[in-house]
């Protein structure tokens, strides 16, 4: 299966999502609703995406965009799965049951963005101290210990 066959397969499987599937730089991008993320991830794993490369998030202002990168050794292809969660109830299903690799990566996203992962076995802060207040990679993070860099440009 190559990336085009994958696209056809996903289009038949997710008819409402098909317009949102694009192939950029040889990597597929699949945008799903947050509540369908786990199903989509599970399907993709069964299709041969056996490696979870990274889990990260982007603070887009009013919501968070979660970005998962999956990789298939068989297809020599990668795919991005993106899902958006609202800022005030930032929560999404964990994929640790599919890839144990998600364990630490989701903890990192929880630590730095404050997004909770339902079903995660051990959701604690990983990089910062346990008593840290706030989630630093949020765009509205305030900390009086930060000295802003003077603007030269």
């Amino acid at each position: 299966m190559n990336i085009n066959e994958l696209r056809e397969h996903l289009c038949s499987e997710y008819p409402d999502l098909c317009p949102l599937f694009s192939v950029e730089f040889g990597d597929g991008v699949l945008v799903v609703e947050a509540k369908r993320l786990h199903d989509a991830a599970s399907d993709l794993r069964d299709l041969g995406f056996d490696r979870l490369g990274m889990v990260t998030a982007v603070d887009t202002g009013d919501e968070f965009e979660l970005v998962y990168r999956l990789q298939s050794r068989e297809m020599h292809a990668g795919i991005f799965v993106k899902a958006r969660v609202p800022r005030d109830t930032a929560s999404i299903a964990s994929v640790t049951d599919l890839w144990p690799a998600a364990n630490w990566q989701e903890r990192e996203v929880y630590d730095l963005f404050g997004i909770t992962f339902e079903g995660h076995p051990d959701l604690r802060r990983i990089l910062l101290t346990d008593d840290w207040v706030g989630h630093p990679l949020r765009k509205d993070y305030e900390d009086d210990r930060i000295i802003r860099r003077p603007d030269y440009i």
């Binding site: 910062l128 630093p136 000295i147 802003r148 860099r149």
Partner: peptide, 10 residues
């Protein structure tokens, strides 16, 4: 790491 960072002791 003087500027912009939240976790470094200066």
């Amino acid at each position: 790491f003087y500027y912009d960072t939240y976790s470094v002791v200066r």
